[in-house]
Design a protein around this nucleic acid. Structure first.
Lengths: 210, 210
DNA sequence: CAATAATGCGAGTGATAGCTCGTGTTATCT
DNA sequence: AGATAACACGAGCTATCACTCGCATTATTG
């Protein structure tokens, strides 16, 4: 007990270490996206990052911690993206333009980060990771609920909530389709997918109140 | 070479063996649905079926073969289901009734067979299994294409095809939502999900021709 | 320029899971 | 009944993978 017995080691991190962490997370994202969670080996992540397994374990205590850190990074980025989307007057726009504004950045983010859906929606992620995703999903549903509520004030809270859930899951379900097509086909597919939301939300708005 | 050198062993299977195979596939379905493909252990499947690992390997050469056999069983059942759905005069029905007729059996099948989406859509299934799924998906898209074509004859083949793909993926994406809710909530969720298709197909039909 | 600490390596270790094999049991055939 | 073959067992083999450890290298501190 030289200074403070219970306190953890200070571990002053150098700039090189921070870079390594980012590189390792990038590599983990690439490998998770390609093979899924369970089938991804830590040695493969280390190799993809161009470092040895030992180096990986200097920065992350285990495989789960890598997934957690990556998921946390995605959660932060998605939160920032959402804040940018929700500009005042958004609900004043025509529905098709509103949808375009909301959906386009989300599509782009997931296309650029294919590991995100793997970690948040994969069937073989550890339970704790799925739990960590719950608040993020809940926040997304809450945003959608607020949007639909502004467009269809006559609906009950329960109806709104169900519509928001369905909207969110429709988005998640159609993501693979957008990610799968070639970049040339993407705009057309993107437009077609947006029409799913246009059709559904139109119906929701037109529904009679309680 | 007692009888025929190249011919494989005849292996006359007893009724008990057939039952075991079915039990093992049922158990595999339950465990795959619960843990995903990679995280499922063959010992867990054997334990769930109430037999020893050795017995499992008497009927299946390896884990992949189990998934293949299970997927094949699903494919056959889905094909039969589809044939039952496509009765003459189906496209004469009002759109909401048509959708109900088509979607309800599909929902029920997947709720009763949760391993089906895991094997056909999971991110960690072996490549060969994903390939095996391609023709099934293509058949489904072809059926949907034919249905939409009957409803909207003015559309080009390319437009029809894209709409069918989007419809199929929307279905796949919304499946987890239906499977996740409690049986009491299921009818309401079911109806809400059907509205997604109603809204989208309405838009597709209303689109101008080329 | 030491001294100290962070970074980096990669062969090696322990545990896990797919799979085997020798043996025993049950069913079918003559 | 006896012979043959399918069925069943479960301890154990082997390959794989998450993870470790001792040591070398590079950066920061005084």
């Amino acid at each position: 007990m030289t200074q403070s017995g219970t306190e953890a080691a200070p571990r002053r991190r150098q700039a090189r270490g921070e870079r390594r962490i980012a590189e390792l997370l990038d590599a983990a994202g690439a490998v998770f996206a390609e093979f899924g969670y369970s089938a991804t080996t830590t040695n493969a992540i280390a190799a993809r990052a161009g470092v040895s397994p030992g180096t990986l374990y200097q920065y992350f205590p285990n495989k789960d911690a890598m997934a957690d850190a990556l998921a946390e990074r995605f959660a932060v980025q998605l939160h920032e993206l959402t804040q940018l989307m929700l500009v005042p007057g958004l609900t004043e726009l025509p529905l098709d333009q509103l949808l375009e504004r909301v959906l386009e950045p989300l599509y782009r983010f997931h296309v650029e980060n294919p590991a995100c859906p793997v970690l948040f929606m994969g069937p073989d992620v550890p339970q704790r990771l799925a739990d960590a995703h719950a608040p993020l999903h809940a926040a997304m549903v809450a945003e959608v609920t607020a949007l639909i509520a502004a467009l269809a004030p006559q609906l009950s809270a329960e109806t709104l909530n169900r519509a928001a859930h369905v909207t969110a899951m429709t988005f998640k379900g159609l993501l693979p389709l957008i990610m799968a097509v070639t970049p040339e086909e993407r705009p057309a597919m993107h437009a077609e997918v947006t029409r799913v939301f246009l059709g559904y939300i139109t119906l929701v708005i037109a529904a009679p109140g309680p």
